[in-house]
Each structure stands twice: as structure tokens, then as C-alpha cells.
Amino acid sequence: MRIFAAFSLICWAGFASAQSDPSQDARLASQQLEAAVVALDAAQSAKDRVTALTETVHAFEDGLAAMRDGLRHAALREQAIEATFAEKDLELQRLLASMQRIGRASGPLSLMHPAGALGTARAGMLVGELAPSLRAEANVLKAQLDEVSVLRQLQSDATEQLKEALSKVQIARTALSDAIANRTDLPKRFTEDPVQTALLISSTETLGAFATGLIDANESGTLPEFDGLQGQLPLPVDGAVLRSFEEADAAGIKRPGWIVATAPAAMVTSPVAATLRYQGPLLDYGTVVILEPANDTLLILAGMQQAFGAIGDVLPKGTPVGLMGGTTLPLDGNLTASARIDPRRRTETLYIELRRGPTPSDPAQWFDLTKE
């Protein structure tokens, strides 16, 4: 019995220490979201509102992702504790019964052990040694029950903060869209010819043909050196690559680019300084943005719901070029259950294609997936 008590205590203590601290994760995420709210207020009066609002939207996206991760860890931790309770149900019943019997004992045992006085003494010593182990195990149990209570309160508080943050980030995105629409300080490499663009769209049937047409209609002028950035570009959106270059999907279709999973309404930015060559709906790709980071080089971003900027603008690196579509985490949904499934809810997809002249290039040669 003593061996069981000691072993059980060690296992429970090891289980507790092996876990991360969901409460601490949620507190840090909460601080991120609070800082983003403060940044949103400051951005409204910032001299460079586009830059300030871009940073604010990033801060909200990072905070929301961190909070959902924290919710997921809390949900999984609670689930693990409850599973442990279920597995140890019989042992816990025996533990509680033993503690109750010891608690009812008000003095020395009144009955003699069948083995005589020596047996009685040994039994008393055994109970005396066992009691601290039982109490220690009971303390571990109480700590686990207290942790479940804390986790449930944490999830309730986090849900309310998520609701507020989702409302604030939408305000920030709208303000960013307005600020970009009213922006007049960007240099222009050329002025769009709407008729020429319309003719090009009507005469092409594929995304590649449209891009080739843009290259053939290249305006004069110099652009920054691009080849030196090979392998250094960050992804234009926070996400994960679902399908790589020329990888077939379930229907057997291969595309000369990447399909990146990302969150609903995520902000898409230019990963490099570039000229905005096109933005708008195109074929069946949804809203498309085409950037020209160097002569005869095009970066195609397709699948957004909204695009920013004016064709011909020269965009600095990190400039927002659009927002993904989709619906953010519903305010009346079960946020904890959603967090268990997919903490970042990457339900939208952005298509990324890079072309050197008329030939697609594998994005793996250009993008560094370790960069955020």
C-alpha cells in the first residue's frame, strides 16, 4: 500500500510538472490584446496612420492567435485532468475512504491485533507512516481540482476578451482600408491605363497568360535588386503551406505555386518592395494582387476578398495589399471547442505564384518559412 501511495504521488506530480501553464499563456495573450487596444487608440492620430494601423492589425492578429492557443492548451489540460480522474476513479475512492477512516480515529486503537501486542504496534506504525502519503496525495488531488476550477474561469474570461478583441480588430481593419484609400505619399512608377487592362483581362484565359501580358506591357524604369533576396522573403500572410509547387490536389490538379492556409480576414502584405501592377477580380481566382519586385518578375497573390492600393504605386516592404475573406470566430460560438480543433482557424487559402519572365519559379527558392 505504501509503495502504491508513493508511486501514485510521483506519477501525479510528474504529470503536473510536465504540462505547460495555460494560465500563464492566457495572461500573456491577454496582455498582447490589451496592448493592441491601446495601439489602436494611438494609431487614430498617428502621423503615418497606415504604418501605425498595419502594426496594430498585426498586434491584434498575434494576440488573437496566442489567446486561441491559450484556450486550446487550457481545454486540453482540463481534458487531461478529467481523463486522469476517470482512469483513477477506483483509486480515488479508496484514497478518500482511507482518509475518512483515519480522520474518524480519535485515539489509540482499542482492539488488539490478532498477532498480539507486537502486531498491534506494527499496524500502528504502518498507519502512522501511511497517513502522510495519503495526505500528500489528497493535496495533489485538491490542487488538480482547484486547477480545473481556475481553467474554467480562465476560459470564461478569455471568451469575453476575445469577443471585444474581434470587434476592435475589425475597427482597425476598416480604418486601415480607409487610410490606404486616402494615401497620397507613395511614389508612382506609372499610371494605369484602364482600357489596356480591360483588354488584357478579356483576352486571357489563365492567370499565367495574364501575368505574361503584364510583363510584355512592362513600363520603363528601374526596380530594386531582387535576386539577392532569394530564400529571404517572409510569407505575405501568417499561415502554413498546404500544397507546394506542382503538388497535385485531391482532384489531381497541379499548380505552379503554393497554396497557403491562413485565418479568416487575415492581413496580406507585400513581402518585398514592389510596384503594384494589378489588383482586382480575375477569372475564378477571386481578388488578385500582382506585384512587380523587379523587371520581368511578378509575385501573384490570389484568393483575397479585398485588395488595397492603386495600380502603379511603388509599395515599401510590409505594405498591406489586401485582406482574406471568410468569417472570423463567431461571437456566439463555443470558442473553447473551436480551439480544441484548430487554434488558429486557418480556414482560408491564399495562392502564391512567382514568375520570372513567362516561367513560374518554385516559391521555396524565395520564401523563408521561418520568418514571421
Rank of each mutant, 00 (worst) to 15 (best):
L223K: 06
P224G: 09
E225H: 10
F226W: 02
F226E: 05
F226Q: 03
L229Y: 01
L229M: 06
Q230R: 14
G231S: 07
Q232K: 12
Q232D: 12
L235Y: 08
L235S: 02
P236V: 03
V237K: 04
G239T: 08
A240Q: 12
A240D: 12
A240Y: 12
V241L: 11
V241G: 05
R243Y: 14
E246N: 15
E246G: 08
A248N: 04
A248W: 02
A248C: 07
A248M: 08
D249T: 09
A250V: 14
A250T: 11
A250M: 14
G252A: 13
G252T: 12
G252S: 09
K254I: 15
R255N: 13
P256N: 14
W258N: 08
I259M: 15
I259T: 15
V260C: 01
V260D: 08
V260L: 10
A261N: 12
A261W: 04
T262S: 14
A263D: 10
A263R: 11
A265P: 09
A266W: 04
A266L: 02
A266T: 09
A266C: 01
M267F: 07
V268Q: 02
P271W: 03
V272C: 08
V272H: 00
A273F: 06
A274R: 00
A274Q: 00
A274V: 04
T275G: 01
R277Y: 07
R277K: 13
L282H: 09
L283R: 10
L283D: 09
D284H: 14
D284S: 15
Y285K: 09
Y285N: 13
Y285D: 12
G286M: 10
V289N: 06
V289I: 11
V289S: 06
I290K: 01
I290L: 05
L291R: 06
L291Y: 09
L291C: 04
P293M: 08
A294C: 03
D296N: 15
L298I: 09
L299W: 02
L299Y: 07
L299K: 05
L299R: 03
L301Q: 10
A302L: 04
A302W: 04
A302P: 05
G303N: 06
G303H: 02
G303Y: 04
M304F: 03
Q306H: 14
F308M: 07
F308N: 00
F308I: 03
G309F: 11
A310W: 12
A310C: 00
I311E: 10
I311H: 07
G312Q: 07
G312C: 08
D313K: 04
V314P: 00
L315V: 11
